[in-house]
Computed example of a mutant assay.
Amino acid sequence: MMAILNTDGTKPIYIQIAEWMETEIMNGHFKADEKVYSQYQLAEMYTINPATAAKGLNLLADENILYKKRGLGMFVTANAEEKILNKRKNKILKGLIEEVVLEAKRLQISKEEVVSMIKENHIWEREQ
């Protein structure tokens, strides 16, 4: 399933492409050592410049989530899922939590109340 790119947002398109590819890997749509979409396929799918698509793929290659086979394309590394999971947990999720804590402090909401709000959220039950 294709992601919808937000061309009006602050997040660059190449990062959105990279994040979508990570999600595809995490969802099992691309397995270890399997070839992923080329920059030209991504450019056609999303009606974007191939250089933008390439930048997203190269970002993942720089993070050792993808690797290049000269003349053949980009492939998923053996430990890609683990790398993505660690990256999202340690960078993205921790950053979001930090934002929540800072906002709670600005609103003078106690730690206990924030924890209670998280516990009362039923998203985990809905997704299972």
Rank of each mutant, 00 (worst) to 15 (best):
M1A: 14
A3R: 11
A3Y: 11
I4R: 06
T7S: 05
G9Y: 07
T10R: 11
K11V: 14
P12Y: 02
Y14N: 04
Y14W: 11
Y14D: 05
I15S: 08
I15E: 13
I15F: 13
I17H: 00
I17L: 01
E19R: 08
E19T: 13
W20Y: 10
W20R: 01
W20D: 02
M21K: 01
E22W: 00
T23Y: 11
E24S: 10
E24A: 10
I25D: 00
M26D: 09
M26S: 14
N27S: 15
N27T: 15
G28R: 10
G28A: 10
H29S: 14
F30R: 07
A32I: 07
E34M: 10
K35E: 13
Y37H: 12
Y37D: 13
Y37K: 14
S38Y: 06
S38F: 08
S38R: 07
Q39D: 15
L42R: 01
E44M: 09
Y46D: 00
T47Y: 05
I48Q: 01
I48F: 03
N49Q: 14
P50Y: 02
P50H: 01
A51Y: 13
T52D: 05
T52Y: 06
A53M: 04
A54K: 15
A54L: 15
K55P: 02
G56A: 05
G56S: 04
G56P: 01
N58M: 09
N58E: 14
N58V: 11
N58Y: 08
L59M: 14
L59G: 00
L59T: 04
L59A: 07
L59Q: 08
L60R: 03
A61E: 13
A61R: 15
E63A: 04
N64S: 11
I65G: 02
I65A: 01
I65V: 12
L66T: 07
K68H: 06
K69Y: 08
L72M: 12
G73L: 03
G73F: 01
F75C: 02
V76D: 01
V76C: 03
V76E: 01
T77K: 09
A78H: 13
N79S: 12
A80R: 02
A80T: 05
E82N: 07
K83D: 04
I84C: 06
L85I: 11
L85D: 11
L85S: 09
N86F: 15
N86S: 13
N86I: 10
K87S: 06
K91L: 14
K91P: 00
L93F: 14
K94T: 13
I97N: 11
E98W: 06
E99K: 12
E99D: 15
E99W: 05
E99A: 14
V100T: 09
V101D: 12
L102S: 11
A104G: 08
A104E: 06
A104Q: 03
K105H: 09
R106C: 08
R106P: 03
L107M: 10
L107K: 12
L107A: 15
Q108S: 09
I109Q: 07
I109S: 00
S110N: 06
V114L: 12
V114Q: 06
S116C: 02
S116R: 09
S116P: 00
S116L: 06
K119V: 09
E120V: 01
I123H: 10
I123Q: 11
W124N: 09
E125F: 09
R126T: 11
E127L: 11
Q128S: 07
